[in-house]
Write a protein that binds this DNA or RNA. Structure first.
Lengths: 220, 220
DNA sequence: CGTATTCTCAAACGATCGTTTGATTCTTAC
DNA sequence: GTAAGAATCAAACGATCGTTTGAGAATACG
C-alpha cells in the first residue's frame, strides 16, 4: 500500500514493538519486562527488536522520544498562549504544564501507559536515562520557570526551581496513579485523572503562592 | 562472644544482607539488583539469602519491614504529641508526618537508601508489594487523615485523602532526591533534604488549607 | 524479468538469573 | 569428648536473559 515493506499489517513492526514495550515497561519496569514478553505482545519475531532498534536500551530511548516530543510541544504551545500577558494567573501556567500530560494520558491507548513509564524513569536511577530525559525535558522546565518567576516576583529563582520540582514530582505521582488511595470502582479512570489534575493545580498554585521565608525550621 | 553462631563478625549475616540489599535495591531496583550482587556486597555466600530468608521476595519484604515499623512508630508518636490539642497547627501535623522520614534518611547509613527503596515501591506495580505496604502503611495514613479532618473541618474526608495522597507522593519524590534539579555540589546532602522538607511542609500546608471548590474545571 | 535490498524467522549463542544440593565448618549442649 | 544442630561454602541446577547468526521470504528497482 504505502512504501513500507512487509506492509499492510494493521501497524508497522516498529510501531507495534513500541506500543507493546510501552505497556510492558509501565507494568513491569525496564528491567522487569523482557524482550521476549515485548515481542510476544507485539506478535513479532524476537530478533526484530535488535534489527529495528539495535538494542534494548535504544528501544527504551525510542519509547520516550516518541511521546516526549509531543508532550513538550504541547506544553510549550499551551505556555505560549498565556506567557507574558497581564491577565495570566498562576493557575493558567500550571494548567499549561499539567493539562498536556493529562490529555496525553487519555487520548489514545498508549498515552496512559506512557505516563506510568515516565514515572518509572524518575524512579529508575539509570544514568543514561536521566541524562536523556534532562536533555529533552530541561529546556521546557526552564521556560516554565521563567514564566513562574514573572508571576511570582517575590520568589528567588532557586526557590522557584525547588517548588517546581515538588510540583513535577507530585504530578508524576498523581498521574501515574501510584497513590495508596484506590479510587472507587464506579469512578472512571478519566474522571479519576481529571479530578487528580484539578486538585493538583489548586494544590500547586497555593503552594507556589506561599511567600518565601527566611532559612529556619519550618515549624514553630 | 554473644549467642550468635559464627559470631563476632562486625554484624550478623542477616543484617549484612539486609543492608546490602537495601542499598542495591535503591540503586538498581528490585528486579535490577541480583542476589549475586547483594551477597557479594554483603561478603556472604550466595546461598545465604535463601537459607536465612527463603527467597528473594521474602528478602524484599524483610527490607521493608525493618525500617517501616520504625518509621510508622515514630510518625504515630510524633502525631500523638500534637493530636487533639487546641493550639496544634497544620504545619505541626505535617511535620509529624514528614520529619520522621527525614530523620530516618540521615540517621545511619542505611536509612537514606531506604527512602529511595520506598520510592521504588511506589513505582513498582508489584501487587504483592503493594498489598504488603498497604497493610503496614494504611492505618498510619488513616490516623493522620483523622487529625487533618479535625483541623480542616471545611474539607470532606475524601478530599483530604486526595490531598494527602498528593502530599505523600511529593514527599516520596522529594525525599528520594529524584528531582531533575540537581543540588549544588557544595550543599551537603543533609542540608538538601532539610531544605526540601521545609519547602514541602510549607507547600503542603498551603495546599491543604486551600478551600474546597465545587466540581468544575480547575482553571477559568 | 532478475538482482539487490529489506525484512522476518527459527535457532542458537554465552551470560546471568533465582534456587537447590551436599559436603564442610563452626557452635551449642550434655 | 562427642553427638546434634546451625551456618557457610563451592558447585551445579534449569530457566531466562539480551544478542547474534544464517537462511529464507517479501519488497524494491533496474
Amino acid at each position: 500500500m504505502t512504501s513500507a515493506p512487509y506492509a499492510s499489517r494493521e501497524r508497522s513492526t516498529k510501531e507495534r514493538i513500541l506500543g507493546a514495550a510501552e505497556a510492558l515497561f509501565a507494568t513491569h519496569g525496564f528491567a522487569g519486562a523482557s524482550l521476549r514478553q515485548v515481542t510476544a505482545a507485539a506478535r513479532v519475531n524476537l530478533a526484530a527488536v535488535n534489527y529495528h532498534f539495535g538494542s534494548k536500551d535504544k528501544l527504551i530511548e525510542e519509547v520516550f522520544r516518541r511521546r516526549l516530543d509531543e508532550l513538550n510541544t504541547r506544553r510549550l504551545a499551551a505556555l505560549a498562549k498565556v506567557a507574558g500577558q497581564e491577565d495570566t494567573s498562576l493557575e493558567d501556567v500550571l494548567d499549561a504544564y499539567i493539562r498536556p500530560a493529562l490529555d496525553l494520558s487519555r487520548n489514545d491507548g498508549g498515552g496512559a501507559a506512557f505516563v506510568r513509564v515516565l514515572a518509572r524513569a524518575y524512579a529508575e536511577h539509570n544514568e543514561t536515562l536521566r541524562k536523556f530525559l534532562s536533555e529533552n525535558y530541561g529546556h521546557v522546565l526552564r521556560q516554565f520557570a521563567g514564566e513562574f518567576a514573572r508571576l511570582l516576583p517575590g520568589l528567588a529563582k532557586e526557590e522557584i526551581y525547588w517548588r517546581l520540582d515538588i510540583v513535577t514530582g507530585a504530578l508524576t505521582y498523581a498521574m501515574a496513579d501510584f497513590g495508596v488511595i484506590q479510587r472507587k470502582n464506579d469512578v472512571d479512570e478519566r474522571d479519576h485523572r481529571e479530578t487528580a489534575a484539578e486538585h493538583l493545580i489548586r494544590f500547586a498554585a497555593a503552594g507556589l503562592r506561599n511567600p518565601s521565608v527566611s532559612t529556619s525550621t519550618a515549624t514553630r
